[in-house]
Design a binder for these strands. Sequence first.
DNA 1: CGCCAACTGTCAAACCGTTGACAGTCTCAG
DNA 2: CTGAGACTGTCAACGGTTTGACAGTTGGCG
Lengths: 231, 231
Amino acid sequence: MVDHVLEVLKSCSLLSGLPEAALREVAPLARVRPFRANEVLYQRGEVQSALSVVGAGNVRIGSTNAEGREIMLTLFEPGAWFGDTVFSPGMPRVFGATAHTDGELVEVPGQDYRALLARYPEAYPRTLDMLSRRLWSAISIIEDNALRDMPGRVGRRLLFLAHMHAPQRGPGPVTFKLTREHIANMMGMTRQGVHGVLKTLEQRGLIRFSYGRITVPDLDALKAYLDERTG
Amino acid sequence: MVDHVLEVLKSCSLLSGLPEAALREVAPLARVRPFRANEVLYQRGEVQSALSVVGAGNVRIGSTNAEGREIMLTLFEPGAWFGDTVFSPGMPRVFGATAHTDGELVEVPGQDYRALLARYPEAYPRTLDMLSRRLWSAISIIEDNALRDMPGRVGRRLLFLAHMHAPQRGPGPVTFKLTREHIANMMGMTRQGVHGVLKTLEQRGLIRFSYGRITVPDLDALKAYLDERTG
DNA sequence: CGCCAACTGTCAAACCGTTGACAGTCTCAG
DNA sequence: CTGAGACTGTCAACGGTTTGACAGTTGGCG
């Protein structure tokens, strides 16, 4: 069991700055939490903090507003981490997490994680780097949303997800398990609006889609198209 | 001169986790860079990294796309820091910086700053906290932009700026030196669109404005209005 | 102290995405 | 293998923003 936890922790980019000995130390403190599709894992506003690493399955990050409208920020795959409030103890979570498929989470209590970092300070630079890259991503999204039209935004977001899911993949198609509604929730659009945009992109051969599934056959082609239609 | 640099560094929240002795060490390595309104300080894409602290004046953070359209992310006042790429050496800057007024910057070379942190590891938790809060802010903006209509976005952004400029101010009016065009550039709107939104907010007594200046007389009233019109 | 450049107010037409509604299609669990 | 539920395609009407254009206002620089 601990072996399994250790494997998950090792797969997490945030923790890869820590020596294996350190990961062995925390592994027994971590909790394995299996989940089923659409289960709510965390809600926006919770104060309790833990570092969560996706061990299996997919997790949607986002939140729901008072009117019941959902906003989805991103979709995480195994190896991804979230719960950035571990770095700001006492802050409420800005977003919630919902299971997108069945899977499991490995949760390291916030204080254990922080204590570990204090004991292995050589891991700090890597940790700062990871956080700063995440900030970089968030700002890119803000820029895209401000400067691009709907097709541009949707395309950029798909590219973003693709890169996140497989940073060093070679050429080849990437498929997401996303409905039109999910995409609408990511972009602040409606299901019908997304429909039109996807149809446009499909006509240009940049994406393909079937029920609940979207495929980008060629990331570079999509990127080239997007770059061309706005600096 | 070094005294002056030291004062600026001490005013910076990012550095307040470092003991004064540490700040005295870096102060001589820092460079003071005066600037005039509208001068370009950094351009998007530059790789060289430095931690910049605003010593005086205001700085616009944002970038310009190939079509010449500008996107503004935020406006920094004295004591604010930027140049998050110091944490990810080699990454290009995601955004540029432009002088909004006359003023001056204090720049600490990236490697000197990183070396300093390594020498005073007790400052790391605070540093992570600051970065994580910045991420929090960015994500809030993404959410607002996805879920709210134009008046909601503009109002929220004004609140955001107000809180950033004076985190622990008591009640009382806050004034920004922003033209309609600046606001339009922050929101991805047009000058004319902003006009309509501001007129609406003004009619409700939530803001006042004159040439190049916007005043929020009562932050709480604005917040209450925004909370009411969307969870 | 006057002029120019920057900022502002306003309008009509065009556009794009939303709203709301309904029928068609696929998938998966039983 | 079959039915219910989830997902999708499409349409017309509506509404808010942009576009483009122009005149009016302000403030600071010379």
